[in-house]
Write a protein that binds this DNA or RNA. Structure first.
Lengths: 175, 175
DNA sequence: CCTACCGATCGGTAGG
DNA sequence: CCTACCGATCGGTAGG
């Protein structure tokens, strides 16, 4: 419901109605509306950050490492289509302290990508595009998967999706 | 304010306070809160759709046409950083009738890109990636510009930005 | 452009 | 898990 209506426009009464109880009864399960948002945001943030450890344990040339990073990222989004939409857009409603921690996790994750990209550029494996432009374009492309991909649709396999994003981002559309 | 707080979480009193008048006085200028959202969404939608006419008037090979389409898209986002953020995320709060028209305009715009991409694939100029995956990734990458680009920052020129997106999307990162 | 106000709804609590 | 309720705030209107 946070994905569909947005966090601010989803009331405790909406949530309660969906579960089939009264709004007041929700407070036997959670302590506040924001706690639900926290749970969602930090669940996804944790999955992304744990990918960083996987990547750091690999010794590969940059282009293979970037492909692996892309595939791992796609899997997180595809496995959490609704939660990742909330993660991407509703985190700004976290309170000050949680937002600070959230942003720190995101920065750690993004830094891992910047490192791979810059490393590849130094070695001459990659074009010398401005890393910020490339990385932000890449994140946006990957994060946008929740907008259109439906895992149960069946027509596109999620592993194939990861490979295709890797192909597009490394080699582009031109034949 | 709709960009920063979201439409639902921005009240008429917030808006009025920003302008320095009472909430009730806003209704001498607008007829409803949603009207402001309409104005923003359809302003941007109009700019995008008018790009389609420009593209249709060009006779170029697909890869040049796609580059032109990308550059035009980037200019709309860059010239309307705040409004395009609202356009991308808050349109779901439009009422039923406006949303229907809005979606129709978006579909018309997206169809122009699909046509170029499919045409290029048939001619063998482009890789045979699934058009939906490629186009959605492209839209997400381009639309995400509002998240990080600041036109007044000065360090990245908007024309250069359009060219760089074209390079990335057509040729990828690999050297 | 204002004051004064409408009914509806908000997140959350008290008490059982 | 409920009923009953709190003060705050919502979009919007009446009337000047």
């Amino acid at each position: 419901m946070f994905k569909e209506r947005g966090y601010a426009a989803t009331s405790m009464r909406h949530l309660a109605n969906e579960v089939g109880i009264e709004a007041a009864s929700l407070y036997n399960h959670i302590s506040s509306k924001e706690e639900i948002l926290q749970d969602i945001c930090f669940d996804i943030a944790g999955q992304f950050v744990s990918n960083v450890d996987v990547l750091n344990s690999l010794s590969m040339p940059p282009h293979q490492k970037l492909l692996k990073a892309i595939e791992l990222h796609v899997q997180v989004v595809v496995n959490n289509i609704d939660a990742s939409a909330v993660f991407f857009h509703e985190w700004r409603f976290l309170d000050k302290e949680n937002m600070r921690e959230f942003v720190k996790m995101r920065e750690k994750y993004e830094a891992a990508f910047y490192t791979i990209v810059k490393d590849g550029m130094q070695r001459g494996d990659f074009k010398k595009i401005q890393p910020k432009i490339y990385c932000q374009a890449m994140f946006s492309a990957l994060n946008g998967i929740y907008l259109w991909y439906r895992p149960d649709g069946g027509s596109i396999d999620s592993n194939e999706l990861g490979k295709t994003y890797g192909l597009m981002l490394l080699h582009g559309l031109k034949a």
